[in-house]
Structure formats: structure tokens, C-alpha cells
Design a protein around this nucleic acid. Structure first.
Lengths: 235, 235
DNA sequence: GACACGTTACGGTGATGACCGAAGCATCAG
DNA sequence: CTGATGCTTCGGTCATCACCGTAACGTGTC
């Protein structure tokens, strides 16, 4: 088949420590400058530039020029999902040897973004709370939001109908994708619903980003809302 | 974080043409001998042996000795899903340049296995038929089997209750994973349900493997059943 | 204009790793 | 036992590619 060469090309691009680090950093969905990416990849700007041009040329990254800065971001959702699935395998594999896996950073473990949705203890706890409250059903390979869940989300200000409209008439129900958390090893909410919740949480000041990392902090307001409205219990 | 190195290791292992070819061949879920894998990777047995030992050492492959043969298979479902998602990205990327992507082989395009479920025109048509008949709902990131669908599957001899039992009580409904077909660019049924349908189809002689490839042939009996019972239309 | 900063282009060095030939182990057949 | 087959180990060669230093190129700032 035609894409066999491209398959190896893509994987080998990802399989280089410096580039892997950059992609990893881009997993929060934001766009970063070449210099920032050079830092996370622990290489000089010259080297990073080369890496970035190659990845953009193939189509893994998309480029946005802005003044004298060049912002790179993941080219598509599918690239993010690919990276996620590789992390999945990787963390599963070295779990066997180290036993203690995932981000050492406490903030990252507590709450972080996973491309466009929430992950970490917060993400998992949120998923657990939704399931426990009868707002959602979640299996390892698929999930859905119940009627009660739709009402809850609407009440919280998330326009579920807009989500439904966007995905076409093939799926009358609100389905969502589960994403196995690589630090907690438990599923959390991804897909359109997960993304909507995450975006909404940022907009309403329930959470905010910590510096330049993928970690997010839960604001006091967020603490209250997650606990009282969603029934989330963060031990 | 700890697994960053492993991430790059895994990806770089996959990102080498010979190994990529081997993994690709293993995507049908079967176990292949070292010699067979050397052939598909287009390398000598010595070289293949090295590749295979490394992949098995890391945990991408599992090994099963049988007499003087050594059978290798993908170590887990998650490895298969990772490869699938990389193929996803790869085919999406060179679609932009070649316009005609996917397996040139007509048989492969028509029907093939994708690790443990059906793909190709048959897989997509089956998914379409189930959706059209109200037996399933399918979005890009999740899917579910309706009550009517459960009845249909039961009627066809697939024990849905057994599937339900296996996935625990968190998901009372029969959810399934969609898998974007990389030749048809449309979703088809994966996950536990997809795997069950595929296995059942083999057992009952609806389909059978073609030689040593991932392609499958639809038997006359299968033609009839897919058409009359499932409502599949293969143009 | 001059200067600083972010980024890219080029050339040479060094290290990693893919590859095969030859040889060595197992397993099975006779 | 002998021979054949499947597979692995070892040693050495070669190509690829990551990396950085230097230098150039844009784009903003003063």
C-alpha cells in the first residue's frame, strides 16, 4: 500500500527524544514558539528549527507566523490522538519496570490538559463523579452522556445541543470518547464533550493554567463547583 | 516524567521501515514466525531476529515458542490501537499528496481484518447497515448498540450478555469503539462488539482468510447473511 | 539609521544503529 | 548418528542523522 513509507516516516519523526519532547509539550493544544520548543527539547534553537521544519513539512505540525515569532501547534486532532496512544503504550510498558509512572510533578498529577480535555486526578475524579451520579456511562472503549447528564451540562452553561448539531444525525445521543489516563490508569472524559467541559472550565475561571506547563490549577470557585455541582471528590 | 524516554523508545522502534512492516503484518492479530516476519520486512533472518528481540524485550511483542518455531504477536490491544492511530495520521498526511491512498490490492480494499475486527468496504458497509437499520449509533469518537441491535446480534448467535458481563457494571449499555477506516475514510465497528462480530463471522464461515494476508474473502453464505440479515449493500 | 532578538541556512563532526556474512544453538527427521 | 531447518549471536562496515558553531536573514525596537 502507498502509506507504508509514510507510516515509518511519521513514527520515526516522533521517535526522537528532542522531537518527542516538543510534541509532548504541544499536547496541551496551545501553540508554542520555536524557542520555547527548543527549550523543552533540550537542544539549541538551530537544531530545534530543523526538527520543526521537518515535522511541519510532513504535516504533523502547523505553523502560524506572528511578527518575528513562529508558533507551532499540532496539526490536527488525529495527531494528538496518535501521541496519546503512544503515551498509553509507553506508560504501560515501563510501568512494568518502574512501578511508579507518570509525571513526578504533583501539579501535573493533580490536574492537566490532555490536548483539549482534562486529565489527571481531576479528570478521572470528574469522570467518576459523572458515572456515579448517573450522568454518564463509561466503558474502556466508548461512553455516553445520559439524559440527566445533558440536563446537568446545560444547567452548568454548556450548550449540548450545539455539540449534537456538530456531529451530524448519525448519533442522536451524546456520545463521548474515553481516554485512559496515563498517570491514574483510569478512564476520563475526552472527545467533544470532554473538550467542551474543559473549555468551559477555563472560560468560567474554574481552572487556570500554571505557567508554561500542561498543568492546571483548580481555583477556589472551581473547587466549589466541581464538588457541589458535579459531586467530585478529590481526596 | 518517567515515561518520556520510553515514549521515544517506543516510537523509534516503530519508526523503522523493516520493523514497521513487521508490525503492520501483525495487525491482523495472528502470530507469525520470525522467518515470515523477515520476509515482510524485506530483511535477512539475522536482521529480523535482532529487531524482534528488541521489540519483545521492550514489550511491544509477545513471544511464543513452539518447537523450533518462534511465533511473535502484538503484545496487547493497546499496541494495536497505537499502530492503528499512526496509520490514521500517516494515511491522512499522504492523502494530501497522492490523493489515492490505502491498499492497492483490491482484496484488501474489499475486506480485511484490523487486529480483531473487520475493516475495508465490508467493515464500513456493515457499520452503515447497522446504523441505517437502527441497530447502532455511531459518532466519530464513540458508538453504541441499540436494543434492536442487541436483539439482532443475539438472533445471529452472538452472545451479547457475555460481552456485557466482561466489561463490568460501569457501562450498562453496549458501547463500542468506532475505528476510522484508512482506506474508506469512514468509521467502522471496533471494540468488543466489532471483535465479537468478526470472530463469529470466521467461526460460522461467513468469511475466511486469504492466504497469508490481512485480506478476507466473503463466502457465498456470508454474502447472503450480510445482505439479508444485516442489510449490507456492497456495491 | 543602528541594534537586539528570534529564526533559519550551511558545513563538519560524531554517534547511533541497520545491515549482512559467518558461525553457533536448538529442534526435528531419518 | 547425520543432515536439514529455524533462529540467534557475533563482528565489522556503512549510512543516516542529530548536533552545534558560524553566519545570514527577517522583524520588530529605539
Amino acid at each position: 500500500m502507498a502509506s507504508n513509507a509514510m507510516f515509518a516516516t511519521v513514527a520515526s519523526l516522533v521517535g526522537e527524544p528532542a522531537r518527542a519532547g516538543m510534541l509532548h509539550a504541544l499536547m496541551d493544544g496551545r501553540a508554542l514558539t520555536a524557542s520555547e520548543l527548543a527549550q523543552v527539547g533540550r537542544v539549541t534553537p538551530q537544531t530545534a528549527s530543523g526538527h520543526l521544519t521537518r515535522m511541519a513539512a510532513v504535516g504533523l505540525l502547523s505553523l502560524e507566523k506572528q511578527g518575528r515569532h513562529r508558533y507551532y501547534r499540532l496539526a490536527s486532532q488525529s495527531v494528538a490522538q496518535m501521541i496519546e496512544s503512544i503515551m498509553q503504550v509507553a506508560s504501560g510498558l515501563d510501568r512494568k519496570r518502574t512501578l511508579f509512572v507518570g509525571p513526578r510533578d504533583v501539579a501535573l498529577r493533580t490536574a492537566r490538559t490532555c490536548y483539549d480535555h482534562l486529565a489527571g486526578r481531576l479528570g478521572v475524579a470528574l469522570a467518576d463523579a459523572l458515572v456515579a451520579g448517573g450522568y454518564a456511562e463509561l466503558a474502556s472503549d466508548a461512553g455516553l452522556v445520559t439524559d440527566a447528564g445533558i440536563q446537568l451540562l446545560n444547567r452548568m452553561g454548556i450548550d449540548v445541543d450545539a455539540l449534537l448539531a456538530r456531529r451530524g444525525k448519525r448519533a442522536p445521543r451524546v456520545l463521548c470518547r474515553p481516554c485512559l489516563d496515563w498517570s491514574e490508569r483510569r478512564p476520563h472524559l475526552a472527545g467533544a464533550v470532554g473538550a467542551a467541559i474543559c473549555a468551559h472550565s477555563f472560560q468560567n475561571g474554574w481552572i487556570r493554567r500554571i505557567s508554561a506547563t500542561r498543568a492546571v490549577a483548580i481555583t477556589p470557585k472551581g473547587q466549589r463547583i466541581f464538588r457541589e455541582d458535579f459531586g467530585v471528590h478529590l481526596e
